[in-house]
Amino acid sequence: MRWLKKNKVITIVTSLLTISFFIYQYTFRPNESIEDISPDYLGTSIDFIRLATTNFDSWNTKVVQLTGEITALDKNGFTLNNKLFCQFKHEDDSSNVKANQTITIKGRVIGYDDLLEELKLNECIQLK
């Protein structure tokens, strides 16, 4: 009888450790890189602005690939077509862009500023 009780305890402890390991692996898995995610929208920034402002909730946190003209530059990012602010994924990416340049970017939609009527993207990368 004692041997049977000892086997039950070992089985329960082993099961708990295994389950804990898988929960830990699932919880602390690395995030997908923006480069690896396929975009939910491909097109021009002007078309996307019209689409996203009418129904923003369906585009929030989605990855998009847009082509547009840089109308303003900032140390943290740039503005496409006066209505779409893109924050760089890496700070050194700002040296590759110039005002009035047509650019294709990939980024994640993170918000809409009602006051400025501007869409916000982060983790933006320039595509060649």
Score class of each variant (00 low, 15 high):
Ile12Gly: 00
Asp114Met: 03
Glu117Trp: 06
Ile110Lys: 04
Asn60Asp: 03
Phe21Pro: 06
Phe21Arg: 09
Lys6Trp: 06
Ser58Cys: 03
Lys8Cys: 01
Ser33His: 14
Val109Cys: 00
Asp47Met: 13
Ile37Lys: 12
Phe28Thr: 15
Ala52Gly: 00
Arg108Cys: 05
Gln65Leu: 11
Gly111Trp: 00
Phe28Trp: 14
Asn100Trp: 15
Asn7Ser: 07
Val63Ala: 10
Arg50Val: 04
Thr67Val: 13
Asn81Ile: 11
Glu35Ile: 15
Asn96Cys: 07
Leu66Ile: 12
Asp114Ile: 00
Lys83Phe: 07
Arg2Pro: 00
Leu51Lys: 12
Asn82Arg: 06
Ile34Ala: 08
Lys62Asp: 02
Gly68Ile: 09
Gln65Trp: 08
Val13Met: 07
Lys5Glu: 00
Arg108Ser: 06
Ile46Cys: 04
Lys8Phe: 01
Gly77Ile: 05
Tyr41Gly: 08
Ser33Met: 13
Thr54Phe: 05
Val64Asn: 04
Thr102His: 13
Asp113Ile: 05
Phe56Thr: 02
Ile70Trp: 07
Glu69Cys: 11
Gln101Val: 15
Lys120Cys: 01
Lys62Ala: 07
Ile37Leu: 14
Lys128Val: 09
Asp74Leu: 11
Asn7Ala: 07
Leu4His: 01
Val97Arg: 07
Gly107Glu: 02
Ile10Glu: 02
Ile46Lys: 14
Thr61Arg: 09
Leu80Gly: 03
Leu66Trp: 10
Lys83Gln: 12
Leu73Ile: 14
Arg29Cys: 09
Asn76Ser: 03
Ile23Tyr: 12
Glu118His: 10
Asn76Trp: 03
Leu116Ser: 09
Gly43Asn: 13
Gln65Pro: 10
Ile105Pro: 00
Lys98Asp: 15
Ser20Gly: 15
Leu16His: 02
Gln87Cys: 02
Gly68Met: 11
Val97Glu: 04
Ser58Thr: 07
Ile105Asp: 00
Lys5Pro: 01
Lys6Ser: 05
Val63Gln: 09
Asn122Gly: 01
Ser94Asn: 12
Thr27Gln: 14
Ile46Ser: 11
Lys83Glu: 08
